[in-house]
Design a protein around this nucleic acid. Structure first.
Lengths: 137, 137
DNA sequence: CCTTGCCCTGACGCCGACGTCAAGGCTTAC
DNA sequence: GTAAGCCTTGACGTCGGCGTCAGGGCAAGG
């Protein structure tokens, strides 16, 4: 099949496919006219790439999976290199989530304080010092 | 004080300050020599900006807080516009966290399946179909 | 006098994963 | 014959928040 059809069947764009090819991730054979030619196995590779991308993997991180499939393994994650990527990504996600949760809690706390201060505007009283204290993110 | 000192006292760089100024966020008076001049109130504004940035706010999102302070309010979040930003950010963070958690769980599930499949290589058996199903992120 | 250290403006670099436009070619359908 | 619709390569645009030159100025200290 040609690039347009492959893109459609994988739910992506021709631009993305050419980009993957430029990165050496999904090379294509060429017909006489110079047009790219793909087959069903390419569709499998592409779907693997897309599935991983959708879960937040960078393109480079999908490479082991693609090569694993291309090597004839039943699944992209049948190879140790793929498992390693899974584990790194898992740790990365956990870290990210924790960071976001901490940020979320700080914002929630500030919001509560600020709302209270606004409600207590008329009665007057002490000045609750705001300023989110921490750093990072 | 001059730009270098302000940057140091707020734990940032002169480049960042010039950038904020270019965005109209933290304008500066100028001395005869054309050098930027700041005072303690600028330091407060800058610290507000930094605190918010550190929790994941975009520059534009800090603007209401800065203008609130500049308007003479005791805290950057003493104004309704700031509270609105807090709330939007809170919702945004919640959404993001949920997305990441979902992704994390998918990856964890895949990893488990793949590890099991690898362990059961010799005994042979059915082919557990992998491929993370969903979309998005 | 010269170095050091601060300041200035302007402008390109970066990162990722493409979107989008430009300019053109081939094939198929009418 | 020609318009439609596919394909080709090349190259610049996007988004945020600066980093990092490049090129130059001004002032104080040795």
């Amino acid at each position: 099949m040609r690039i347009g059809e492959l893109a459609a069947r994988a739910g992506t764009t021709t631009r993305a496919l050419r980009y993957y090819e430029s990165r050496g991730l999904l090379p294509a054979r060429r017909g006489e006219n110079g047009h790219r030619r793909y087959d069903e196995s390419d569709l499998r590779l592409l779907r693997q790439i897309r599935a991983l991308q959708d879960v937040g993997f960078g393109l480079e991180e999908t490479r082991p999976f693609v090569e694993c499939l291309r090597a004839g393994h039943p699944q992209g994650d049948s190879c140790p290199a793929s498992l390693a990527v899974y584990r790194r990504k898992l740790a990365e996600l956990d870290g990210l989530i924790e960071e976001l949760r901490a940020a979320r809690d700080k914002v929630a706390a500030q919001l509560t304080k600020a709302e209270l201060a606004a409600g207590a505007t008329v009665p007057g009283g002490p000045e609750p010092v705001c300023e989110l204290g921490g750093r990072k993110l």
